[in-house]
Structure formats: structure tokens, C-alpha cells
């Protein structure tokens, strides 16, 4: 006779707790648990808001963290000195590491503009082996197009997107790249596959995608300019669908795919 009442006593308080637990775990939106680290350009501290607005407009509900890396001594100093600083990049890599240690399932995206891309790549090269980010977006990168992205890509589980434009007046006139590397800046014509690439490099460049400026992007406010690439409309229409998606976007064409087509001597 006492059994039913005892059962009521035990299960009664448990039911709301179980419901709360189920709600908290099962109904969480994967977009909420995502996080974006953003590095602004040298001496340009206002692009983060438009990038954030573009992502939010596309449905991104995660945290957006602007990583301040500038020495506030002007764009020249940022570009030539601070962007190459391993210590500054280590600060970002530690932040990424901390977020991942706290929540290993959290999706992390890292983005940068112009010289900020040097910080992004340097930070990715410095994170411990077990730390991975999901996607990387480099807006108008002023690092060398010949830079070997293999070490950075070891810590990227998804794709690395790099925008480039022949109408970019700033990268066109750059004499020294933000990372000090040789060759033209990647923001002009995109990253290039290193010569004599091994298997690891080839695997890495299968996930590196150049996004060259196209006339159709004018409709999304990117006229090919250096900082216009971070306009919210462009981020919403072109960048967000790529990073909010689990697999590659149908329009993605990796550098490796391009190289394979050229190597087979296909008709251009």
C-alpha cells in the first residue's frame, strides 16, 4: 500500500528537473554554441561591427569576440611590426585554446581583415596539436600569397576562405607583406599552392578556397575595395552561408581542385 505513495514522492520532484535537463541539452541550437574571433585590420578598428551585423542577419547567434591586437601607434606600425609579433598571436591562440578546453564541442571560427590575417594565421600555427577551429575567413589578406598554409590548416577542421580582388587599392600598392613573406599579397590574386607540395600540403590546400571578387558581389556592397569586403550585406550573403554550413558550399572551389584541373591540361 505504501509503494504508490513512495513512488510519487521519489518521481514527483525529479520530473521538472528531467524536463529542464532535456530542454537545456536537447533543444540547444548549434548556432548558439558557436564563437567567432575577429581581428581587425592595421589601424582600422571599425570593420568588426559590420561583420558581426552580417553574421547576425544570417542567423548566427553565437558569441562574437573582437580580438584587439593593435599597438595603437598607427597603421604602419601595426602592419610592419605588430602583425608579425609572435607574442600578440600567442595571446589569440591562448584564447582559442581556452574556449575549446572549456567546451570541446563549441564551433570556433576565426576571421581577420588585412594585416589581422597575419595574426590569425600565426595564432593558428601556435595552438596546441589537439586544438582545432572550424572555419577561417581571411578578408583581403595582406600576407604573402606564397605563404605555406599547411601548418595553420593542421588546426582547421573545415575550410579556409580568403577573399581577393584586383580592384583592391591597398594590397595593390603594398611593398611589404604583413607577415614579411615574399611575393604578392594574397588579397590581390589569392593564395597559391606551394611548389613541390607533399601529401600534407595537398590535403591542406583541398580546404583552402580563394573567393575572388566578381561583378555579382557589387550587389552585395563589395565593389572590390579593401575594407568594403567586410560590409554586412556581403558577409550575410556570401560568407555566412559558408561558415554556418557543416559541409563545403556548392560554389566552393579549392585551390587543389584548380591546380588539378590546370595540371591535367584541361581547356581554360
Amino acid at each position: 500500500m505504501s509503494m504508490p505513495s513512495c513512488r510519487r514522492c521519489t518521481w514527483g520532484p525529479c520530473l521538472p528537473i528531467l524536463v529542464c535537463l532535456a530542454w537545456a541539452t536537447g533543444c540547444s541550437d548549434p548556432k548558439i554554441s558557436a564563437m567567432v574571433f575577429y581581428c581587425d585590420g592595421a589601424g582600422w578598428y571599425s570593420s568588426a561591427s559590420s561583420v558581426k551585423a552580417g553574421l547576425r542577419a544570417a542567423g548566427f547567434k553565437g558569441k562574437f569576440d573582437t580580438f584587439s591586437w593593435s599597438a595603437f601607434l598607427g597603421p604602419g606600425h601595426d602592419h610592419l611590426v605588430t602583425a608579425r609579433s609572435k607574442a600578440v598571436a600567442r595571446r589569440l591562440s591562448r584564447k582559442i585554446e581556452q574556449v575549446q578546453l572549456k567546451d570541446p564541442n563549441r564551433r570556433i571560427h576565426v576571421m581577420g581583415l588585412s594585416a589581422g590575417t597575419a595574426i590569425v594565421l600565426s595564432a593558428l600555427e601556435q595552438v596546441p596539436d589537439e586544438v582545432h577551429v572550424n572555419h577561417v575567413v581571411l578578408f583581403s589578406p595582406s600576407v604573402s600569397a606564397l605563404r605555406d598554409l599547411t601548418p595553420a590548416m593542421q588546426h582547421v577542421s573545415g575550410q579556409l576562405y580568403a577573399t581577393c580582388s584586383p580592384h583592391d587599392g591597398i594590397v595593390k600598392t603594398l611593398v611589404i607583406n604583413a607577415d614579411g613573406g615574399p611575393g604578392p599579397p594574397a588579397g590581390r590574386s589569392g593564395f597559391r599552392m606551394p611548389s613541390r607540395a607533399g601529401e600534407a600540403t595537398q590535403a591542406a590546400y583541398r580546404r583552402v578556397i580563394n573567393l575572388p571578387w566578381q561583378p555579382s558581389y557589387v550587389g552585395y556592397d563589395w565593389d572590390g575595395g579593401h575594407t568594403a569586403v567586410t560590409r554586412s550585406k556581403f558577409v550575410k550573403a556570401v560568407i555566412a552561408p559558408r561558415i554556418l554550413r557543416l559541409g563545403p558550399h556548392p560554389l566552393d572551389r579549392s585551390i587543389m581542385e584548380q591546380v588539378a584541373i590546370v595540371q591535367t591540361g584541361a581547356e581554360l
Partner: peptide, 26 residues
């Protein structure tokens, strides 16, 4: 791509061939 992988693969190849010019050489 899921339901007709072979047909789509050849279309994609043709698409890549036509598009590789400006992406790699810019």
C-alpha cells in the same frame, strides 16, 4: 549530388574547367 553523383560530377568537372582560369591565374 546525393541522388545523381556521376552526372553531377561530370557537370562539376566542366564547371571547374571553365572557372579555373581566373582563380589560379587571376
Amino acid at each position: 549530388e546525393r541522388e545523381h553523383p556521376t552526372v553531377v560530377a561530370s557537370a562539376r568537372q566542366a564547371w571547374l574547367r571553365s572557372g579555373s582560369k581566373s582563380l589560379t591565374v587571376a
